[in-house]
């Protein structure tokens, strides 16, 4: 089963479970959680069921396209179900069986792993799911978001698509994965990985990025003041990605780092407050 078939199967599976299938958010994010489809929708009381693929960029994890496991950008399949169904674990397991994994032939475990994203004031408890020892999914019950306890818990299921595909296709190197018949992951991604690694480790213009961060922060705050959540949040995402490049570039000192994170967090809290305010008005 090639990469795109695997993704389609999973998406279709969750659609059948009642999830709305969305397209990847069209901005750089560090993880599927940062997409407003997760971060904003887990706030408040409104039910929400969605599935989407989210390319996720982690500049510091870039390895110039040379490491078989680590990537500047990887792909997550994100499932958000709020409130969670009582058989959510079994539903998730069925999605794995659908990929041809026979339950009797494998050892599938839920191993404790609690997750937090301080930059969003978000935290949850859950597991990493091990498939014969390999982590293929992060399974989390949101407990906090935007610095507040969530009134209704959402479950977040994040499949690491490259990991899962390597397991399904029995490949040791991510670049050898078959994406489409006759087209490998390497054909599509290796050059991009190399270029982005060179950019974020060597070429990124620090001064320009610092200015960009400041500008985006200002614009985000201005939109928070105007109570326009979406543009405010989109500029927050730009701040977050800009910071991630600066971080990878190795120029951010410790105290500076804390300060940057605090600045992004303040915007996140501002957006979260607006979102909740809106919901309360409805």
């Amino acid at each position: 089963m090639n990469f795109e078939e695997m993704v389609s199967k999973l998406e279709r599976f969750w659609e059948d479970e009642g999830c709305t299938r969305l397209f990847p958010y069209d901005q750089e994010v560090g993880a599927g959680t940062l997409s407003p489809y997760t971060f904003l929708r887990v706030l408040g009381r409104k039910p929400w069921k969605a599935v989407y693929v989210q390319p996720s960029r982690r500049p510091a994890d870039g390895r110039y396209g040379e490491n078989p496991n680590r990537l500047y950008m990887h792909h997550q399949l994100q499932v958000i179900i709020k409130p969670p169904t009582t058989d959510i674990q079994d539903t998730y397991l069925r999605s794995l069986y659908l990929l041809g994994l026979k339950p009797a032939e494998h050892d599938i475990r839920f191993v404790e792993d609690n997750w937090e994203t301080p930059v969003l004031g978000a935290a949850g408890v859950g597991w990493e799911v091990w498939l014969d020892g390999m982590e293929v999914t992060q399974f989390t019950y949101f407990q906090q978001a935007g610095g507040q306890e969530v009134p209704v818990v959402a479950v977040e299921i994040t499949y690491g698509l490259e990991r899962l595909a390597m397991f399904v296709q029995e490949k040791k190197n991510v670049y050898e994965l078959e994406w489409h018949e006759g087209v490998t992951y390497g054909d599509l991604r290796q050059q991009v990985e190399r270029e982005n690694s060179i950019y974020s480790f060597e070429q990124a213009d620090i001064e320009a990025l610092v200015t960009m961060f400041d500008l985006c922060e200002k614009e985000s705050q201005r939109m928070i003041d105007k109570k326009l959540i979406t543009p405010a949040y989109e500029y927050l995402l730009k701040c977050s990605h800009t910071f991630n490049i600066l971080d990878a570039r190795g120029t951010v000192g410790v105290s500076q780092r804390m300060a940057y994170l605090a600045r992004v967090r303040r915007l996140a809290y501002g957006c979260a407050d607006l979102y909740l305010e809106n919901e309360n008005h409805e």
């Binding site: 032939e105 498939l131 020892g133």
Partner: peptide, 14 residues
Amino acid sequence: DFIDIVRRGNESVA
């Protein structure tokens, strides 16, 4: 049953 599959999986993770 099928423990060889599990073993191979763990070996490659290791």
